[in-house]
């Protein structure tokens, strides 16, 4: 596989993620403990190695960076204090900013729907969030059975809880800048 190597990539990702990526010596404990490594196109230790090797394009369009559930097992066990989850967060944000075709569109659209819902009400309201997620991802038919059971158990309130000082939430979104904003990719 040949792809152009970006030699500044490791420094950029280390800076954005706050992780000492250069210290990884491939003991692979992160991969051993990762609950979702079995569905990743590159496993956690490979992700770190690929960052070191400047494999920018392959990583930003990979599905692996979206499969991380943020469980913090890798970072807790890494002998060099590297949390691959934080690296994945940085790579996701770079992928969104650069408008590359994301490797797991449904997961990306879920996070967008969640943040939009939060911004609108200040708290997350499941029903409207799920409707937006389904419209964005066109994943229309999943989870209907579970949704019905939760509705029957009266666990999905029809109306959102709206906080009073929503302008403070809007200001936090503005202050967070580019990564929090909708990308061209997300708007299509």
């Amino acid at each position: 596989m040949s792809s152009p190597i970006d030699w500044r990539f490791m420094d950029i990702v280390a800076e954005r993620s706050g992780q000492p990526i250069a210290t990884c010596y491939q003991c692979r404990k992160c991969t051993a403990g990762c609950p979702t490594a079995f569905v990743m196109d590159y496993d956690p230790a490979q992700i770190v190695h690929m960052v070191q090797m400047g494999e920018r394009r392959a990583l930003l369009s990979s599905q692996a960076i979206w499969m991380c559930v943020g469980c913090e097992t890798c970072g807790t066990r890494c002998p060099n204090g590297i949390c691959v989850g934080r690296i994945n967060d940085a790579l996701r944000q770079m992928a969104a900013e650069e408008g590359v075709r994301v490797g797991a569109p449904a997961i990306y659209q879920f996070h967008r729907a969640f943040l939009n819902n939060l911004r609108r009400f200040g708290r997350v309201h499941e029903i409207t969030m799920i409707v937006e997620y389904k419209l964005r991802s066109l994943d229309l038919l999943s989870n209907l059975d579970l949704g019905a059971r939760l509705l029957l158990a009266r666990k999905l309130p029809p109306l959102p809880q709206v906080i009073r000082r929503r302008q403070e939430i809007a200001r936090l979104f503005e202050a967070a800048g580019a990564h929090a904003a909708e990308t061209p990719e997300g708007r299509e």
Partner: peptide, 25 residues
């Protein structure tokens, strides 16, 4: 009083500074 959502997985996945800013409020 008037608490807001912590941002959960979505804020740290896509929101950059929001991941700490939302819970900080």
């Amino acid at each position: 009083e008037d608490w807001n959502c912590c941002g959960a997985s979505s804020a740290h996945s896509l929101g950059g500074e929001l991941a700490d800013a939302l819970p900080a409020r």
